[in-house]
Design a binder for these strands. Structure first.
Lengths: 136, 136
DNA sequence: CTAGTTGCAAAGCATTTGCCTGTGG
DNA sequence: CCACAGGCAAATGCTTTGCAACTAG
């Protein structure tokens, strides 16, 4: 075993590439179905199984991270996007998920004595600007 | 149509009651499987379908609310517990989910201009007191 | 050439529904 | 008595896996 870095995909395929491009192109968290739909435009015969396999692989390689939206199927976004600590906003009208930079902090103070905080995730819900204007 | 209130279970059955008791007994968010396991002690032949049917009914009647834990199956807790604004802590060692009262606030300030905040959910993760002490 | 990859289809899981029997009121 | 509920099993819907064929290196 010569290299141990997490970021080594063994082979470069057009499917794998198309899936990765889907992330780059969107700039926001994507569900497996959205990825599949997008990547299929580049690689017509692309199967759902391949999408899932690559998502898990990318996840193990820490190139993407899962984004959990309450009541919604999981989405994924690039690790680069996740580097900057941020949270998510789910528009209940158009369904899109947006990255929200910043964090209120002070969460550890809410915990009972003895509890150790490792990580946290904040999901906001409401209407994005576009949908907010449209519904007025 | 004479009554329209949301809290109308049509009939009082032992299964329904056992499921409800499971919530009362635990005092923390429970997964369908946990509910089933607990309620089955009171009603041996209780089927999973009945648990799910009752959960959905209780949810419609607004007597329980879903609790989404990132990467975990949904849990549910009593509406009474949910009345006091609170969040959740998932112990990554023992797997239990705890209610955390309080909220850091200031979330709306993080949103881009034009975004409207309707609701939010905060999931914390780490070690609860018991597991924290044990691992030291 | 050779092993990592893909597609398809079948297998898994968790949740929902259909249908007929049981029972609360 | 009779419609609501429950039990069982089949049906979903989403994700994973098995396997033979394919292809990047």
């Amino acid at each position: 075993m010569s290299h141990q870095t997490p970021g080594r995909s063994q082979r470069q395929t057009q499917q794998r590439d198309a899936i990765w491009q889907a992330f780059k192109a969107s700039g926001r968290p994507m569900s497996p179905a959205e990825i599949h739909e997008h990547a299929q435009q580049a690689v017509p015969g692309l199967g759902m199984a391949t999408v899932y396999r690559n998502l898990r692989k990318l996840e193990r390689e820490e190139r993407i991270v899962p984004v959990h939206v309450p009541g919604e199927p999981d989405r994924y976004e690039t690790a680069k996007a996740a580097e900057a600590h941020h949270h998510h906003f789910h528009c209940e009208v158009c369904g899109k998920v947006y990255d929200i930079t910043g964090c209120p902090g002070g969460l550890a103070d809410l915990l009972p004595k003895g509890f150790e905080l490792t990580a946290h995730e904040i999901s906001m819900r409401g209407r994005c600007e576009a949908c907010s204007l449209a519904s007025e």
